[in-house]
């Protein structure tokens, strides 16, 4: 593509999303459905209906694009926004709506979220601004895989890297945990994928030769029969 064609495409893309946001129209899909389309969670027929709507609706197109950009691997923040650190969150806790929910938090986190915290405590989250060349990306071909041959692939680390893999279904029920993989791929046995499961979520933890640990984003793979 030459410079002129590139400029033309940039102008068309900008114009396509130039309308200001307003209230949703009566025929607009729910925001959740737009999210599902943008992140590849819808089946082809439903996805096509959403995409045909996007051709006519600037606002839904903007919502869809925001969702897609959020889940794109390697997306950087366009402009820094205010930092929300635990220290900044202190005044947040004084607000009425937060206080109303705080009681639930004490019980809720104590009962169940502790499991989540415990599970992830050994793998601190990797934030966009902390990303390095060691960021783990899912292979594009893994957006959709057949149940009988569900081989998950991701970008390789330096030689000697070991990978741990966690696979869950949409309800975050664990389907498989594998530790110490030496190659950046894993064939998920079909018997580990219940028939009802149409989508799996998976995450890779890479243990680099220099003792560092890199945790990937959570990737989504649609399962076909």
């Amino acid at each position: 593509m030459n410079d002129r064609a590139r400029d033309e495409l940039a102008r068309l893309r900008e114009a396509f999303s130039a309308e200001p946001w307003g209230a949703a129209g009566t025929d607009c899909p729910e925001v959740g459905e737009l999210w599902a389309s943008a992140t590849g969670e819808l089946d082809h027929q439903a996805d096509r209906m959403v995409l045909l709507h996007l051709a006519q609706c600037s606002q839904c197109a903007s919502i869809w694009r925001l969702a897609r950009e959020m889940v794109l691997p390697g997306r950087e923040e366009a402009t820094p926004v205010v930092s929300i650190t635990p220290k900044k969150a202190v005044p947040l806790m004084r607000r009425p709506s937060f206080l109303a929910a705080a009681a639930t938090l004490v019980i809720g986190l104590g009962l169940g979220a502790g499991l989540l915290l415990h599970r992830e405590s050994s793998a601190p989250p990797v934030y966009r601004q902390q990303r390095s060349a060691q960021t783990i990306l899912a292979a594009p071909a893994t957006m959709q895989l057949p149940r009988a041959s569900c081989r998950l692939r991701w970008s390789a680390g330096p030689e000697g890297t070991r990978y741990d893999l966690l696979v869950t279904d949409e309800n975050v029920t664990i389907l498989a945990t594998v530790k110490g993989l030496t190659s950046p791929d894993y064939l998920l046995p079909s018997e580990k994928i219940p028939r009802r499961v149409r989508k799996i979520l998976w995450r890779v933890t890479a243990h680099l030769p220099d003792q560092r640990t890199v945790v990937s984003d959570t990737f989504t793979t649609r399962i076909t029969d």
Partner: peptide
């Protein structure tokens, strides 16, 4: 969910 929910990154 009586505290049983977990939240994935997605």
């Amino acid at each position: 969910t009586e505290g049983k929910a977990t939240f994935s990154s997605i």
